[in-house]
Structure formats: structure tokens, C-alpha cells
Nucleic acid binder design. Structure first.
Length: 470
RNA sequence: CGGGGAGUAGCGCAGCGGAAGCGCACCUGCUUUGGGGGCAGGAGGUCGCGGGUUCAAAUCCCGCCUCCCCGACCA
């Protein structure tokens, strides 16, 4: 019985498909103020999984969590010229408090470099205080003219790390470590999203940074999404906020700094990297619920058997839940869990009971397999591992297929219609970058031919990866 | 901020001078349950706001507000 599709098909209207998924999978709603969003419980559970995985990796690099205030004196922003210039257009400024006009307006943080560094100046005295490695989980506000749920909202949730080091080399190494060991590792191994790591051009660099490193991913429609950034700030903020320390020889030096972050934008990336016409497809490593045990009908002890399966799977370390709402039609429930991207379903009904088996369904492939009732835990565990690998593999293959090696701006423009183009950075240059930008195409990152990170933007043989971006 | 559209039930829309409707969702009951089931009944509206024209305005006119889409900025 052919029903109207639940979602607008991707190849018909991709942005519409995205909105449909967000609504139908109950991920988010628009907030009452334009550009704000309500993150619904299912998406928030995904965010909590992201937080747990990222937080553990951050702590493994030695950083510790802290919390700094939402409100920042406007004057702080002004201390670093490029920084204030970069953020001014998108600031939310509070002019009144307690029923009175404030002597000095306060801004709602768009990022926390300025407040945090004003305290670093207090806390750092000696080389013995370095490196100082701080992270905070917080909300930030950047007023957006064209918001899109998760991808671009006026308020979003993120993690922002801020560090101070004794040497430029130490800061550079740390910024790279965060990019590799925290972000890239998390995105590839948990989100199953292959990312291109590289260096941003001067044009795309963070306001106030001397170098910005990025993780770029390709979405289902061939467009790029920046999923995370790690910046070397040089001594820009150290000078602006007077963060100095006594070195081993008794001299005074400014610290070298980094800052880095990933946000709820990753939820949008996850949707668009793996989603298909039936909805979300979550990688098992991230999925809040890895296995949904679906009771078809509560007859002949099937209910007890289903509850037993959940207990068995839970004991085996699997995040399993039971759907025994037999008053809701089976088709409805199947469609719902597919929309929500639950990686594996285990169906159990009278037919399975009679055969002494259960039915295992993989979300990523749609494949259904009958498996003996006694082998559920090992077979489910294996299926989860296979689904995780298959999602990464599929996303990697798409990225390779839709990336073209070209040699001119014209060819790059053509290639950017469906994906990325790779070409020599020397064939683009800042003039070429401007010309591409006029057509909505940006240099996503610069890489060395072997994929390693450039130390400077001036290296001779750099490769530019260009494309359209969210 | 420039260009283009739209405001009617929770969501998506029709109606465009003469009793406010349709699909989905929601509630009740029965029946069904292995891929968005079926039948019956029901609830839900200052038709964005304000003014005007008219015997009569969701519909025509004027003003305002809001939202969406396309371009310049952005995690």
C-alpha cells in the first residue's frame, strides 16, 4: 500500500527535507524570538552524547572545565581590534537592567575570549602557571539574519576552550592536538563523519586569530559544513589583556594562546551527513538508543520475551529500549523509529515466537534478518559495529566521488555545483578567492598534498579545497 | 539592508462579496495490529492587526505588523 512519503524526498528539495526531518523526528522547534530554537528531548539526548564524548577527549588533553559569565562589558570586546570588528554586527547588547539604563552596556557573549583572558591576566604570573588549559560548556549569542535550525541560530550551545602557553610552538602543537585528538577523532569514530582537516585562508580566519584550523565535512547535497575550529591566537589577546609571565630567566613575556570550539551545529551535520528519505540514520556510537525492541503483539508470552531481550542487551552493554505500545499500529511505530534513526530494531511477534527466533532490522541498509533467539546479544553487537562502519564508509565514498581535481577557477565553479573541488592554492590566490566568493563559493581549507597541516599559509604547494557551504 | 512571496484549526492548504472548509494530527468507542490500518462519532477559528467601502467582507480598498524565500555576514 503506497502511502505519500513521510518526508519531502532529498532529490526533490533538500532544504525542505531537512526541515521535515527536524520536525517529524521531533528534534527542534523554532523559538518565539526569531533565530532562537527549542531543542527537544530526542535531539538534546544526542547533544548529551556528543558532550560526553567530546568532554572526555578534552579532559584527556589536560584541560579542565570552568564557567565564565554570560554578560561581558562592552569595553572588553573593544580591546582587540580585529575581534570587535568581526563580531560587532552580530552582538546582542543589553542597555537596561534593574529598570535603569546601564552606565556601560553589556553584551551577551558571542564567544568568551575577552572575559576569560581578563582573568587569565590575573591567574598567570609565572611560567609555572603554564600551560593554562580551560574549557567551558555554555550558550552564546550571535544575532543571525538568516537562521536555520541547528546550522545557524542566534543562540546556540557549544564548548569553547581557551589556553595560554609559554611558547608559540607549544600553543601551535596544542591547537593541532585538539583538532586531531578531540575533534577529528570524535567526528570520524563517533559521528562516522569523515572530515577534511586543514588551515583557513586569511579571509576565513577567526576574528583575532593568527591561524585557524578547521574540520570540514561534506553533507548529503555536496555542500560543506564547518564542524569545528581550533585557533592559534598568537599574542594578540595577551597584548590586549596584558597576560604576562615571568620566564625561567626572570624576563617578562606575553603568553601564546589558543581557542577552539564545537557546537550544536554538529546536530545539523549529523542529520545531513547520514540522513536519507526515511529520516535520520544515527551512527550507533552516538545514538541515544542503539536498539529498539519492538513488540509486534503481546500474545503467547511475546511481551515477557521482549522485556527479557531488553534486559539481556542492556547487560551486554547495549543502549536498548522497549516499544511495547501494541495499541499503536506496527507500521506507525516502524516508521517513527526509522525517522529517529535508531540503528537497529529487534522485532518480536507471534511468528518469531513460533520459530524460536527474532527479526533484526538495520536502519542503515533496511536489511531484515531472522536470528535465533539465543544469539540476540552477539548478533546485535555485531550489527551495530557493522552499521557504524558502513555509515562512515558511505559518507567517505560520497565525499570522494563528489570531489573533483581541477586546475582552473572555471572548473572549480563547475565542480562546486555538486561537491568539492581540489586545486592548487597558487591557482586561486586571494583574487581568485574573491571571484569565487561572488558566486557563493568559498575556500573551505588549505592542505598539504599529503593531507597534513600547513604550518603557514605561504607554503608553495598547498592544495585548496573549495565548495559551497552552509 | 536590497529583490520576491505569504499570513484562514496544532501542521499543510483551499475558499477570493452571500451560513468558515479540506487533508494530516488530536479526543471517544468498536474493530484491527508482521510497514504511516478501517468504521462511526467528536472537539478545535477575534480568517495577522487597525481603519474604510457595502444591505452583507476571510474575500474589495488604505495603513501597519509579522513570517518565509533569494542575495551580502557567520560555529
Amino acid at each position: 500500500m503506497a502511502k505519500a512519503p513521510v518526508l519531502t524526498p532529498q532529490n526533490e528539495d533538500y532544504p525542505r527535507w531537512y526541515q521535515d526531518v527536524v520536525a517529524k523526528a521531533e528534534l527542534a522547534d523554532n523559538g518565539p524570538v526569531r533565530g532562537t530554537m527549542v531543542i527537544r528531548p530526542y535531539a538534546y539526548a544526542m547533544w548529551e552524547r556528543m558532550q560526553a564524548e567530546v568532554d572526555g577527549r578534552i579532559k584527556a588533553t589536560g584541560a579542565r572545565n570552568a564557567y565564565f559569565p554570560l554578560f561581558i562589558p562592552e569595553s572588553y570586546l573593544r580591546r582587540e581590534a580585529e575581534h570587535v570588528e568581526g563580531f560587532s554586527p552580530e552582538l546582542a547588547v543589553v542597555t537596561h537592567g534593574g529598570g535603569k539604563e546601564l552606565d556601560e552596556p553589556v553584551v551577551v557573549r558571542p564567544t568568551s575570549e575577552t572575559v576569560i583572558n581578563s582573568y587569565f591576566a590575573k591567574w598567570v604570573q609565572s611560567y609555572r602557571d603554564l600551560p593554562l588549559l580551560i574549557n567551558q560548556w555554555a550558550n552564546v549569542v550571535r544575532w543571525e539574519l538568516r537562521p536555520r535550525l541547528f546550522l545557524r541560530t542566534s543562540e546556540f550551545l557549544w564548548q569553547e576552550g581557551h589556553t595560554a602557553h609559554a611558547t608559540a610552538a607549544d600553543a601551535a602543537a596544542y591547537a593541532e592536538r585538539i583538532l586531531r585528538d578531540v575533534y577529528e577523532d570524535f567526528m570520524v569514530n563517533v559521528l562516522a563523519i569523515p572530515v577534511l582537516t586543514g588551515r583557513k585562508t586569511a579571509r576565513e580566519r577567526f576574528a583575532g586569530a593568527v591561524n585557524t584550523l578547521t574540520c570540514e565535512a561534506m553533507m548529503g547535497d555536496g555542500k560543506a559544513l564547518q564542524l569545528g575550529t581550533s585557533h592559534e591566537l598568537g599574542q594578540n589577546f595577551a597584548r590586549a589583556f596584558d597576560i604576562t609571565f615571568s620566564d625561567e630567566d626572570g624576563g617578562q613575556s606575553h603568553v601564546w594562546q589558543t581557542s577552539w570550539g564545537v557546537s550544536t551545529r554538529m546536530l545539523g551535520g549529523l542529520i545531513m551527513a547520514h540522513g536519507d528519505d526515511a529520516g535520520l540514520r544515527l551512527p550507533p556510537q552516538l545514538a541515544p538508543t542503539q536498539v529498539m525492541v519492538l513488540l509486534v503483539r503481546a500474545e503467547g508470552g511475546a511481551g515477557e520475551r521482549a522485556a527479557g531481550l531488553v534486559a539481556e542487551l542492556t547487560a551486554a552493554g547495549v543502549r536498548a529500549e522497549l516499544d511495547d505500545r501494541v495499541d499503536v499500529s506496527f507500521g506507525r511505530r516502524s516508521v517513527d523509529w526509522e525517522l529517529k534513526g535508531v540503528p537497529v530494531r529487534v522485532e518480536i511477534g507471534p511468528r518469531d515466537l513460533a520459530r524460536g527466533s527474532v527479526t533484526l532490522v538495520r536502519r542503515d541498509t533496511g536489511e531484515k534478518t531472522g536470528i535465533p533467539a539465543g544469539e540476540v546479544a552477539p548478533r546485535v553487537t555485531a550489527a551495530l559495529a557493522q552499521a557504524q562502519a558502513a555509515l562512515l564508509d558511505g559518507a567517505r565514498r560520497r565525499q570522494e566521488e563528489r570531489t573533483a581535481d581541477v586546475s582552473s577557477l572555471e572548473e572549480a565553479t563547475e565542480a562546486a555545483r555538486s561537491g568539492f573541488a581540489r586545486l592548487a592554492w597558487s591557482a586561486v590566490g586571494e583574487d581568485g578567492e574573491t571571484r569565487l566568493a561572488e558566486q557563493g563559493i568559498t575556500v573551505r581549507c588549505l592542505r598539504r598534498p599529503d593531507g597534513s597541516l600547513p604550518v603557514t599559509g605561504d607554503e608553495g604547494d598547498l592544495v585548496a579545497v573549495v565548495g559551497r557551504a552552509y
